[in-house]
Simulated scan of single mutants.
Amino acid sequence: MVSAPETHTGKAQAATGLTMFAAVMMLITGFLNLLRGISAILRNAVYLKTPDYVFKFSLAGWGWVHLFLGIAAIMVGVGLFRVSLWARILGVVIASLLLIANFLSVPYFPLWSIVLMALCSFVIWGLCVVRREETPSGQGGQW
């Protein structure tokens, strides 16, 4: 028979595990977007050209968007290892922005965009699935 403290510890471990999963996925997504941004800025010949796309930017413009979002994702991903509330909130915001940016750039590099959209969705899921009562208690402002 499982006692209440062991169950609470199990829930706290699950919450920490999901946050660590989201942190690792955020770092991966950040590095992939960083590389995508650099490649679009330096050598945009690897991307498709879509003449009649509604959300048309220059490829270098998309490169800068992905570069800055990638840097932000890496910084928040590192912050997620502390399991703090601010990092979880920023993680959802940055992952949402990355998801939107990758959706809008699907015509330029379809497969890469879809893979990154899936990774961003996993990050958002990992950060939002844990309820407050399932997280470690007695840690002040942390979850």
Rank of each mutant, 00 (worst) to 15 (best):
P5R: 02
E6V: 14
T7K: 09
T7I: 11
T9Q: 15
G10E: 04
K11R: 11
Q13M: 15
A15G: 10
T16D: 10
T19Q: 14
T19K: 05
M20Y: 13
M20C: 14
M25L: 13
M26A: 13
F31A: 10
L32H: 10
N33L: 04
R36K: 05
R36L: 15
S39V: 13
A40F: 10
A40C: 08
I41S: 07
L48H: 11
T50P: 09
P51C: 08
Y53P: 11
F55T: 08
K56E: 13
K56T: 02
K56W: 05
F57M: 08
L59T: 01
L59K: 00
A60L: 12
W64P: 03
V65D: 09
V65L: 01
H66Y: 11
L69P: 07
I71P: 15
A72V: 10
V76K: 01
F81T: 12
V83P: 03
W86T: 13
R88L: 01
R88W: 12
I89N: 10
I89K: 04
L90S: 03
G91A: 01
V93K: 10
S96R: 07
L97E: 06
L98W: 11
L99N: 05
L99P: 05
A101M: 02
A101W: 07
A101H: 09
L104E: 02
S105G: 02
P107C: 07
Y108P: 05
Y108D: 09
F109K: 05
P110R: 11
S113D: 06
I114Y: 00
V115N: 00
